[in-house]
């Protein structure tokens, strides 16, 4: 096990890179497999030099639930932003900045939250302050700040805390 660990330091990254290579080549011929494995090994060893913080996903179930919620919210928020764009003048002038306090401190958790916020149009991640643990957001439809705080904290952050901490 430890010998394998030494050759392939990041097994998941290795598999992901190999899958990417095979998808790009669109074949599973032996030659492609071997060359893909070499490329994936190179990527793994390059990653060792960067020595990233270890990421641990604790609850697979929570991750699946989060993916489901985000999938639904993508459609919902696309519809919301679409109606604002095509709507009248008064609908388009409610945007503004807001700040909220996050309990989440894990770097990977924050990265996933940033992706979620961007995938659901209408909220834009501007700046996270790690000292004050606050997040500056720009919201297109800023009528009620507490509505957005509830959405982010209850719908996403609780699940992210379960997954990463």
């Amino acid at each position: 096990m430890s010998a394998l660990r030494r050759v392939v330091p990041y097994p998941l990254l290795f598999l992901a890179l190999l899958a990417m290579w095979l998808l790009l080549q669109q074949s599973v011929a032996p030659g492609t497999l071997i060359f893909g494995a070499l490329v994936a090994l190179g990527g793994c060893w390059a990653m060792v030099a960067l020595s990233p913080q270890p990421a641990r996903i604790r609850r697979i179930g929570a991750a699946v639930r989060l993916a489901g919620r985000v999938f639904v919210d993508v459609f919902r928020s696309n519809l919301a932003v679409g109606t604002i764009v095509l709507g009248g003048e008064h609908r388009r002038t409610h945007s503004g900045f807001m700040t909220l306090r996050l309990e989440l401190t894990n770097r990977y958790g924050l990265a996933v939250l940033a992706i979620v916020m961007t995938c659901t149009p209408g909220t834009l991640w501007v700046h996270y302050d790690p000292m004050r643990r606050t997040l500056l957001l720009h919201v297109l439809d800023l009528v009620d700040e507490s509505e957005w705080v509830r959405l982010i904290k209850l719908r996403y952050e609780t699940l992210l805390l379960e997954i990463f901490e």
């Binding site: 993508v74 696309n78 932003v81 679409g82 764009v85 388009r92 002038t93 945007s95 900045f97 961007t118 995938c119 659901t120 149009p121 209408g122 909220t123 834009l124 720009h138 297109l140």
Partner: peptide, 16 residues
């Protein structure tokens, strides 16, 4: 959309 920060929300419609 009227200002820059509002406009940043628009392209993410196409990107998602």
């Amino acid at each position: 959309l009227p200002d820059f920060y509002s406009r940043t929300h628009a392209p993410s419609l196409g990107a998602t």
